[in-house]
């Protein structure tokens, strides 16, 4: 076997390992079927071509499943879900930004900054508990429980952000007074919400997928 051929097979194996993750949960068997065929293909170029086709198929199936999940979800729920995720991200950004703006020129942390600072540590824990509590029955995004818990969580967080007293004034003051601080803060404010939204979305989908696979396994064992 030549070195070139070996590389092709290595790349193929690497891609095939991603296949079960890429394929929607209800079609994981098909990912296994495609992967098994690979071991019977002697020619490395043909094996790589086969793998690329399999990845293409899995991607297509994933997109179809995503579109179907959106169209099957009532529009009201879907829009609210997205809105909640965005508000969540914005609220967290606010909490990240607030302590920075509350920092006095001489160093240390102003009153109120401590509250926001410590709550930031609790945020992932609250988020995880919230996800776990609201998604145990299966699909999470259409779940009213999830929306309710996220809304409660972020009413609490926005309330906290407002409760830190002069946070807002300090924020605008900092923006106007210090260009360097404005640049950094603006970058944070612009980058963090989309990033958090995407991360939350991925976490939800991942959890949804895990729960669906587990539920399917339980059903097959019961049968």
């Amino acid at each position: 076997m030549t070195r070139r051929a070996t590389w092709r097979r290595r790349i193929s194996r690497m891609l095939l390992r991603c296949l079960p993750q890429l394929m929607p949960a209800d079609k994981v068997d098909w990912a296994t079927a495609m992967t098994r065929e690979f071991d019977y293909i002697a020619d490395d170029s043909a094996a790589l071509a086969w793998t690329c086709g399999c990845v293409l198929t899995a991607t297509k199936m994933r997109i179809i499943a995503m579109v179907a999940s959106f169209t099957n979800t009532p529009h009201k729920n879907a829009i609210t879900s997205v809105a909640v995720l965005v508000v969540t991200a914005l609220a967290v950004t606010l909490m990240v930004v607030a302590p920075r703006t509350l920092t006095p020129a001489g160093g240390g942390m102003a009153e109120g900054g401590h509250v926001a600072f410590w709550l930031m540590y609790f945020w992932p824990v609250i988020m995880l508990i919230s996800y776990a509590a609201t998604t145990r029955r299966g699909h999470c995004l259409p779940s009213g429980f999830l929306l309710l818990s996220l809304i409660c969580l972020y009413v609490m967080q926005i309330g906290t952000a407002l409760a830190v007293g002069p946070a807002m004034d300090a924020l605008f003051h900092a923006f106007g007074a210090n260009v360097q601080a404005w640049d950094t803060t603006l970058k944070l404010a612009l980058l963090v919400p989309p990033l958090l939204t995407v991360l939350q979305w991925l976490a939800l989908n991942r959890l949804d997928r895990t729960l669906t696979v587990r539920s399917m396994r339980n059903d097959s064992f019961a049968a």
Binding site: W30, T51, G53, L56, M61
Partner: peptide, 11 residues
């Protein structure tokens, strides 16, 4: 047929 065409058809 390539795998990218075949498997969606089989499914």
């Amino acid at each position: 047929l390539k795998s990218g065409t075949l498997y969606p058809v089989l499914m």
